[in-house]
């Protein structure tokens, strides 16, 4: 029996739902026991565990300390969701004045303690495995849980959403219909959901941290512009989910 903890930071809890769902499979329930999970188990303090799943990005000092203490108590750390891996959609506020953002969102902003930056978990601690996605794909999580129980890990495949799109036999919406699609620069894993509905991918699994550099991203932006998107929308789309990776690439060099 592996002992499991689930820790949530700044996020929408969408990924956590997938954890709950994974624990409905009998072969998984028979190998793992959830010991700490504020949404599900009535335990105040997290003890030592074999695996911890961390969802969400880090917004303040308190969360940063928490993540470090969690790392110390867990044998294996899995960052789940694009927030934990790359910063997530909350990164859109980076670049704006943090006080303006607070005022726009909260009635009493003076009580909100928050960094102006967004930190993915992977910036603060060593993570053993990542499952990106917004939310993550439930089958990626069950695959991880099953393979971990056999003493291994899923074999990592680093590719674009386009790979899944083509394996599903979908016609490219960008090429055949001129619909802007972020598939070529987005990490695979979702199974090309958006193109399967005739829509463009909007990058929710985060921008590829491999193979891209500034020149290539600019070529891609130009392509989207040719399809009629305006520059600001393109920038917002590209930095939307994988903000950290995007800004590292645009600062120069490869991610």
């Amino acid at each position: 029996m592996y002992r499991v903890a689930v820790v949530k930071l700044t996020s929408c809890s969408g990924c956590i739902n997938e954890i709950v769902y994974a624990f409905t499979f009998s072969d998984i329930v028979s190998k793992y026991r959830i010991e700490y999970f504020t949404e599900l188990v009535d335990v105040e303090e997290m003890g030592g565990v074999d695996i911890v799943f961390i969802e969400g990005s880090i917004s303040n000092k308190h969360q940063e300390e928490l993540v470090k203490s969690v790392r110390a108590k867990a044998g294996f750390v899995v960052a789940i969701g694009t927030c934990a891996v790359m910063g997530g959609v909350q990164s859109l506020r980076v670049g704006s004045d943090v006080n303006d953002v607070k005022k726009a969102v909260y009635a009493e902003p003076q009580y909100i303690e928050v960094y102006s930056d967004v930190k993915p978990v992977t910036d603060v601690i060593k993570v053993d495995f990542v499952i990106p996605g917004c939310p993550i794909n439930g089958s990626a999580l069950t695959s991880f849980l099953r393979k971990y129980a056999f003493g291994g890990l899923p074999i990592a495949v680093h590719e674009s959403v386009c790979a899944e799109c083509k394996r599903r036999g979908l016609e490219c919406v960008l090429v055949a219909r001129g619909v802007p699609c972020l598939g070529p620069v987005t990490v695979s894993g979702c199974g090309a959901i958006c193109p399967s509905f005739g829509r463009g991918c909007y990058g929710c699994y985060g921008i590829k941290y491999f193979d891209l550099n500034r020149e290539k991203l600019e070529a891609f932006s130009r392509r989207l512009a040719e399809l009629g998107m305006d520059r600001d929308d393109i920038d917002a789309l590209l930095k939307g989910y994988g903000f950290k990776v995007y800004s590292a690439i645009m600062r120069g060099g490869e991610a």
């Binding site: 695959s143 099953r146 393979k147 056999f150 074999i155 495949v157 590719e159 674009s160 386009c162 790979a163 083509k166 394996r167 490219c172 598939g183 070529p184 620069v185 590829k208 491999f210 193979d211 891209l212 290539k216 070529a219 891609f220």
Partner: peptide, 24 residues
């Protein structure tokens, strides 16, 4: 200008490379 998306390979009628994966 190539971003490594692999579309060229998937649509090419002679490309045959495959990955093998276990689905449990």
């Amino acid at each position: 200008n190539c971003v490594g998306c692999g579309n060229c390979n998937y649509v090419c009628p002679t490309c045959f490379c495959t990955e093998i994966n276990d689905i449990v």
